[in-house]
């Protein structure tokens, strides 16, 4: 695992964010910004999910519950009658922290289970939250939905604040992802993912790091939900706590590569535009769900670890065999282990 911040890594991140920062300024077709907002939203969601599902190996299928809680928190604080302005963006950190704290007991209970049982427990969390959203009518408006304060932005640049808010959340999620990898939190999470019982046996603070990952992940997802609610303006339980959002963020991380920095981002930038395209091509039907299933099958069959890890694995093997060939032709001692050549590219 390559962990030092390299120049190549800095340049990659710099170019990526610079392009995204410039897109609204440069302009383009009307649909571009809207599509990008959802792409970046999913990149942020998937990166946040990855903190838990990727690094800790706890594949939550209920993360959209926190997304919905964040969305409703924004909607409830800034109901339709109140003038919103930029205030909903500034309240986001508070929502994030509150949801993170709120998620700790949930994480503590649910992470007493593992793997598939954990996935099922978190699905339950999703449906409990959705049911609450339908039934706590005084707060959520139930099935009638709840409106958020109309955003008073100029029509020509209406999308900009939402776009940049999502972009900042993506940067934060990726920043935390990078921090996890470079700190003992990430090291400890890697042991949890590999062999949790053994991790206990060498004194790793297993419960603590799992809860940190869970809470940070949940809080970030809630903040994204808050921006989303303000952007769409009117939220309903079935859309704010939509299983498809959960599936989306999980699928994107799987596609790009779980437990990597760029994997979830790559997954989002492939799947969201593809989904928009198919929605256009097939009309507003839900046929794109079939494509989701197909994508998932293909990943599981051919790229079980996701695109990035598979590519780096292939590169590594090629380099190792090239080094091996070089050694053979140089007729060097065949026993040496190619320490310097074998470097993970992740």
């Amino acid at each position: 695992m390559k962990l030092a911040i390299t120049r190549a890594g800095l340049i990659r991140a710099g170019v990526f964010f610079l392009i995204l920062i410039l897109v609204p300024v440069v302009g383009g077709p009307g649909w571009l910004l809207n599509t990008l907002i959802f792409t970046i939203m999913y990149a942020a969601l998937s990166s946040s999910w990855n903190l838990l599902g990727g690094y800790a190996g706890y594949p939550s299928l209920g993360h959209v519950a926190f997304f919905g809680i964040g969305a409703y928190a924004t909607a409830i604080i800034f109901t339709g009658s109140v003038y919103g302005g930029y205030a909903p963006f500034f309240v986001l950190p508070l929502i994030g922290i509150a949801v993170a704290l709120f998620s700790i007991p949930i994480g503590w209970v649910s992470m007493r289970t593992r793997a598939d049982v954990f996935a099922i427990v978190t699905i339950t969390l999703l449906f409990i939250t959705q049911t609450l959203a339908f039934n706590l009518k005084n707060f959520t408006g139930g099935a009638q939905g709840k409106s958020v304060a109309p955003a008073p932005f100029d029509v020509s640049t209406y999308d900009w604040p939402f776009y940049y808010a999502m972009l900042i959340l993506l940067a934060i999620a990726m920043g935390i992802s990078l921090y996890f990898r470079r700190s003992k939190i990430g090291l400890s999470l890697a042991t949890v993912r590999a062999d949790e019982d053994k991790a206990h046996g060498v004194g790793v603070r297993v419960t603590a790091v799992k809860l940190i990952a869970f809470a940070v992940s949940a809080g970030l997802v809630a903040m994204v939900g808050g921006v989303w609610a303000y952007y769409v303006g009117f939220i309903y339980p079935q859309f704010a706590v939509d299983p498809l959002i959960t599936i989306g963020m999980v699928l994107m991380a799987f596609l790009g590569g779980r437990g990597t920095l760029w994997g979830p981002v790559l997954g989002a930038f492939i799947l969201v535009p593809a989904q928009e395209y198919f929605a256009q091509a097939f009309g507003a039907s839900e046929l794109y769900l079939l494509a989701y299933a197909a994508v998932f099958l293909v990943i599981m069959l051919f790229l079980p670890r996701g695109i990035l890890p598979s590519i780096s694995e292939r590169l590594k093997r090629r380099r190792a065999s090239a080094a091996g060939a070089a050694r053979d032709s140089a007729n060097a001692a065949p026993t040496a282990i190619p320490t310097s050549e074998v470097k993970a590219v992740r």
């Binding site: 003992k184 990430g186 090291l187 991790a199």
Partner: peptide, 14 residues
């Protein structure tokens, strides 16, 4: 990872 670390070190370098 097996050497043990304090809470503070948990947030420090890998």
């Amino acid at each position: 990872v097996a050497a043990g670390y304090s809470w503070r070190q948990l947030f420090g370098r890998r």
